[in-house]
Amino acid sequence: MSLTWEPKIVGFACQWCTYAGADLAGTSRLQYPATVRPIRVPCSGRVNPAFVLRAFQRGADGVLVAGCHPGDCHYTTGNLFTRRRYSLVKRFLEYLGMEPERFRVEWISAAEGKRFAQVVQEMTADLKQLGPNWKMRETT
């Protein structure tokens, strides 16, 4: 085990854009921290906000929801619902006291392997600054 603490990021990735973008980061051999644990979903519009809370509850230090850029959704409109939904959820989480850095929503296309790596790097750096999350997290 590493001696230094590494944050744990649960990343919901739409399979058409972000997941493919993350694959591209792999084929391009871009290096980024092993902090992100991706969950492949068909569309960012599939991600229930309660999934995000569950991740924090079970010990995620950060959560990322990422999908196609608006207008590029494989299903045309899925990410437009995502945008509305998470515009609210992001603010609500912060309202409950969560630090803004812990939850991010990003549009990452299948061509943006670099962007994926960059988002993970940024988030990891932010979370290292903040330290482990204990808010809304179960104690036992």
Binding site: T77, R83, R84, R85, Y86, L88, K90, E94
Partner: peptide, 21 residues
């Protein structure tokens, strides 16, 4: 209902950061 629709130019409410709009 507001969450059952969208506008093509909806804002990205997470951009501004912070709890306040």
């Amino acid at each position: 209902e507001p969450l059952g629709q969208f506008c093509p130019d909806d804002p990205e409410g997470w951009r501004e950061g912070g709890a306040q709009p």
